[in-house]
Amino acid sequence: MNVLLSIAKERRRLLLVVLPHLLACAAFLTVFLSRHDRLPDPMATHFSGAGRADGYTALGSFPYTALALLLVPTVLFTALAYGMRGGRTRALVALGYALAGLLGYLLCALVLDNARAGTDGAGARLELWELGVALAVAAAAGGLGWLLAGPDATPAREPAAVVAPRLELRDGEAVTWTRSIASRPLRLAGLALVLPGTAVGLLAGWGAGVGLVVGGLVVCAFSAARVTVDRHGLTTSLPWLPRPRLRIPLDRIETATSRPVDPLADLGGWGYRVVPGRSGLVLRSGEAVVARLTTGSEFVVTVDDAATAAALLDALAARARTGGA
């Protein structure tokens, strides 16, 4: 029964995400069809800072462009909301509402301005105050979305921690656990930036390609990490440099466990993430070391053989508390 209820709830939530975009589409189509006879061909669709038209689109292709502009974010937001279902989606819903309000208002205003200009699109003006109104509409729609979404439920489906037997440490024993992790998708994403960047650089001059190349190299550099558990605490760093690094000292760690982590639902994405009550480095989904800190929040690192790492970290933290070596 509970499962059915939660499925119905998730469906309602997805409907809530799609709704503003559909309303924006409906508003645009209503305005466009009612003014269709009075629209110039081509329509003015781009305006200079002073509000004068300086770009045009054929009347025949304008509605398709406009609908695509409205529907692409619809698909994006729906997919994100589905991916993060059960997670913290309130801000996402609000952002979707704001975007739908902004785009919907601007496209309707564009049609009305063109209709006012009559047969010649060059006479159409888009005044600055209309942008101001568009932003106000976006803010109002965003606020409405925020209210409709309601507070985020604390994730009920907290997966059970894998309880590892705490490693037994002998007196004076020095122990280190270390392992490197690499994210293949991140590395591919980095290469996907570097290669076109290089091509663009060769064809159109390095000024054009350097941003892509540098961005790609940075993504590649951060696609791997080394995780270490030792007498200092839990440390993550780049595989080939001692710094920069993230280190949680032992005296800040209450307990440590390992459990499976879903980057999108638990931390809102991949990489180094900070969400209320939880932070960490997630390069993939799957088993992770989860350290509960003395502040009550959690620090998460996805890594293979997390159970061993967690068992050792727990033992080291306990030894540090009792004042052992």
Binding site: A174, T176, T178, R179, S180, R226, T228, R231, W240, D304
Partner: peptide, 21 residues
């Protein structure tokens, strides 16, 4: 297999600091 062929081991200095040796 928890350390793969071609993988870099921790730098000697880092590992020494980690183990306290």
């Amino acid at each position: 297999g928890s350390v793969r062929p071609g993988e870099r081991l921790p730098a000697a200095r880092t590992l020494a600091d980690s183990l306290g040796v």
